[in-house]
Write a protein that binds this DNA or RNA. Structure first.
Length: 474
RNA sequence: GGUCCCAUCGUCUAGCGGUCUAGGACGUGGCCCUCUCAAGGCUAAAACACGGGUUCGAUUCCCGUUGGGACCGCCA
């Protein structure tokens, strides 16, 4: 029987799933899958004043969208308060934790003073020896840290990190309102849930020696630790709203594909030689902490955008057609209830896949496949809808009108005939047509566009352009 | 301020003592392809923070400096 790997992602529901959290979840997920272990989702909602059910939903939604499915949970720490209290009681009984009656105001004042005087900011342990309760004061429970010796964190990424116990202070494990705190619940839960590897951001590295002491006090072995480097904004400070979109779902709304985000995130801190693009299977196969870096990395939206364009390019037109639907509606190109022929949509999408970097771009560049251009781009019209192109356009209309089968080749033949007859370049014809059909000078190949638009729409739009160039007799 | 972490092109990174005139990717410039725009191909500019060691030899190992980050909550 091999020892089974069990890891967890433990977000606190005080906000949406953000980029950093997603990356942590991803590395946990990859590690679990690589070792055929279990990935557990645990909601750390012990701060009842800031945690909300809405955010729990939002986190689940984000993970689901990214395809980071979990094997157990979601567990909520608020469901386990009795468990934590029994552990607290045990520590108090064993003399490894004690009641502290210092008020938070006093504590805060002492903190400020210590900071101002440049002294280490930590609780001095003054309530340690207290025998009698202080009347009228609801106490907290503090964990009694050892005062000498060292605690060393053996980290899979950082190696051995040593801390002097003297600098670890007696942290609060139970608040005066009888609710437990993070540093304690995380230990209890990781023990109860038989977590073998704690994989989290390296902002937790400094908490780890304290947690190790609690494992010891409780009499349990410590799990292995892996502290991931942070993701920073362009100014090298912790990624926050100031740096733009940080919530995972914002990227969905901006038209990103989950696989693209995953691929981007995994390369922040992890690498596999020179490879940039990975399937999920490859990720699972190759993932290891050996190739996880130690240095924080800066979030680069441009590279993410590039990756997204790569994924859009490689996706099947059919799946993209499905994904782009809500964006078409949002762009007002398609009515809420309107029916679309999926095969036709897919064929249109196919022409635009390598031109769109996001689903939003894809949707908006799909516009002229649905709607006749309301107005022509001013510059485009001036340049291409003129007396010179009138002749070509008229000839083209005639040729296209005589065509029943709108295939790429048959359309091309019509074009070639006109080009040769007039001794012009293809562009001299293609551009005016493009303006007539799409309203502007940018589109996929003009033969493709005509093929997708079909005879009726194409002729209608050419007629309209013709009438704009040379208004008929009134 | 204390503690801890970190340090290769602007950014993400490869490099695990000699193969480095330091490789790839994003972005940027140029060229090619071309019915426009993309995509694609080629190409250019662009980095080992600094100072000491160790070593026959350091981007790679050690120490220091500098710089950046995180933590120091009755938040997680």
């Amino acid at each position: 029987m091999t020892e089974h790997i069990r890891v967890r992602f433990a977000p606190s529901p005080t906000g949406h799933l953000h980029i950093g959290g997603a990356r942590t979840a991803l590395f946990n997920w990859l590690f679990a899958h690589h070792h055929r272990g279990r990935f557990i989702l645990r909601i750390e909602d012990t701060d009842t004043t800031r945690s909300t059910d809405e955010y729990i939903e939002a986190i689940i939604q984000g993970m689901t969208w990214l395809g980071l499915d979990w094997d157990e949970g979601p567990f909520r720490q608020t469901d386990r308060f009795e468990v934590y209290r029994s552990y607290v009681d045990r520590l108090v009984k064993e003399g490894k934790a004690y009641y502290c009656y210092c008020s938070s105001e006093d504590l805060e004042a002492r903190r400020q003073e210590a900071m101002a005087q440049g002294r280490p900011v930590m609780y001095d342990g003054r309530c340690r020896g207290l025998q009698e309760p202080v009347p009228g004061v609801a106490p907290v429970v503090r964990f009694m840290m050892p005062r000498d010796g060292q605690t060393v964190v053996h980290d899979l990424i950082h190696g051995a990190v040593e801390f002097d116990n003297a600098q670890l202070d007696d942290l609060i494990i139970l608040r005066s309102d009888n609710t437990p705190t993070y540093n304690f619940t995380v230990v209890v839960d990781d023990v109860d849930m038989r977590i073998t590897h704690v994989i989290r951001g390296d902002d937790h590295l400094n908490n780890t020696p304290k947690q190790i002491q609690m494992y010891k006090a409780l009499g349990y072995d410590t799990p292995k630790f892996a502290h991931l480097p942070m993701i920073l904004g362009a100014d090298k400070t912790r990624l926050s709203k100031r740096h733009g979109a940080t919530s995972v779902m914002a990227y969905q709304e901006m038209g990103y594909l989950p696989d693209a985000l995953i691929n981007y995130l995994v390369r922040l801190g992890w690498s596999y030689g020179d490879q940039e693009i990975f399937t999920r299977d490859e990720l699972i196969r190759h993932f290891t902490f050996e190739t996880v870096g130690k240095a924080a990395s800066v979030f680069n939206p441009e590279k993410l955008l590039w990756l997204n364009s790569q994924y859009i390019m490689k996706a099947s037109a059919e799946s993209l057609a499905e994904l782009v639907l809500p964006f078409l509606i949002k762009e007002g190109i398609l009515g809420e209830e309107e029916k679309v022929n999926r095969d036709w949509l897919a064929s249109a999408v196919k022409t635009l896949q390598e031109r769109a970097k996001t689903l939003i771009e894809l949707a908006s560049s799909l516009r002229y496949f649905f709607i006749d251009p309301a107005v022509y781009d001013e510059k485009a019209a001036a340049k291409f809808l003129n007396s010179q192109s009138l002749t070509y356009l008229t000839e083209l209309r005639e040729g296209l009108n005589g065509l029943d089968e709108y295939s790429h080749d048959s359309i091309e033949k019509i074009f070639t005939a006109i080009v040769e007859k007039n001794g012009i370049k293809l562009g001299a014809l293609a551009q005016p047509v493009r303006v007539a059909l799409t309203g502007g000078t940018v589109s996929p190949g003009i033969f493709e566009v005509i093929g997708i638009l079909g005879k009726e729409t194409t002729l209608r739009r050419i007629d309209r352009a013709l009438s704009v160039i040379a208004p008929g007799p009134a």
